[in-house]
């Protein structure tokens, strides 16, 4: 690794070498998901909590049989919840399911078309979950004041969207992400919106502490190759951020000396 001077990402007291978090939705099968996970070098992966299908073959492997909670940090989400109450219930179920695991991804959605976060319900759910001892990584809009409020409530990471979930539109408002970063004392992780590798690099170059993505990898023509690209993009963006970019200039600045010319 060439990022020797970098510190690991710290979330709720745990250290992560990878700054990429991936999802487990939309994959053809668990094996493809695992191959992408390995190629991405991510150490944390999101899962959803859903009803067991009563008719299901009981010998059929489940996601957690393939993607081991011993090897990876499982981040249960509250996707599909539209109220604080449902989100809190989902987290309690997740904690029981994962033997007392406290880390959750809170997302409370506002409507089905945009999947935009419902901020008032998100704030209410965050208050309850923090009071109940959960370590809350929270998906939210890119509003700097809301991000700060979520941090004050005690969320362990604030995760503003770059663009709507599954849209692949990239980081639509880098200025807001910068404002969020300026105020933040907890990790800021762009969650949603990344479409391709350069989007992930842009998020990291802004100074984000990590990137969370699902569709960009799962819906790529070759998910495993895209997972590898995302690993490199996140690392490259992080190194570029740490290196400190040159200033932008309107006019040229010669790279070769102007003195000593013989013509």
């Amino acid at each position: 690794m060439s990022t020797k001077q970098d510190r690991p990402l710290l979330i709720a007291g745990a250290e992560y070498r990878s700054r990429l978090i991936i999802g487990s939705g939309k994959y053809k099968d668990f094996e493809k998901n695992l191959a992408a996970l390995e190629a991405s070098a991510a150490e944390m992966i999101t899962v959803a909590i859903r009803r067991v299908n009563l008719g299901q073959d009981k010998d059929e492997p489940s996601l957690l049989d393939i993607i081991s909670p011993e090897k990876y940090t499982i981040l249960p989400n509250t996707a599909g919840c539209y109220t604080a109450e449902d989100a809190v219930r989902s987290c309690r179920m997740a904690r029981e399911l994962l033997d007392g695991h406290k880390l959750v991804k809170l997302e409370v959605l506002g409507d089905q078309k945009t999947l935009y976060p419902n901020v008032t319900e998100t704030l209410a759910a965050a208050e309850t979950l923090v009071a109940e001892g959960f370590d809350v990584m929270v998906y939210t809009s890119d509003d700097p004041l809301v991000a700060r409020r979520l941090e004050e409530i005690g969320c362990v990471a604030v995760m503003p969207l770059g663009a709507p979930i599954g849209s692949g539109l990239g980081i639509r408002n880098p200025y807001n992400i910068r404002m969020i970063l300026e105020n933040a004392q907890v990790p800021i992780i762009v969650d949603a919106g990344v479409g391709t590798a350069s989007d992930a690099s842009i998020a990291m170059e802004l100074g984000c502490h990590g990137v969370l993505m699902n569709t960009a990898i799962a819906e790529a023509r070759n998910p495993v190759l895209m997972a590898s690209a995302m690993r490199k993009a996140v690392e490259a963006g992080r190194e570029a951020y740490l290196a400190g970019r040159m200033p932008r200039r309107l006019y040229a600045s010669a790279s070769s000396p102007v003195d000593g010319t013989f013509f």
């Binding site: 999802g23 939309k26 959803a48 859903r50 009803r51 994962l98």
Partner: peptide, 10 residues
């Protein structure tokens, strides 16, 4: 009664 499990999700 609700019985849940972890499945794929983002």
């Amino acid at each position: 009664i609700e019985i849940v499990q972890a499945i794929g999700g983002g």
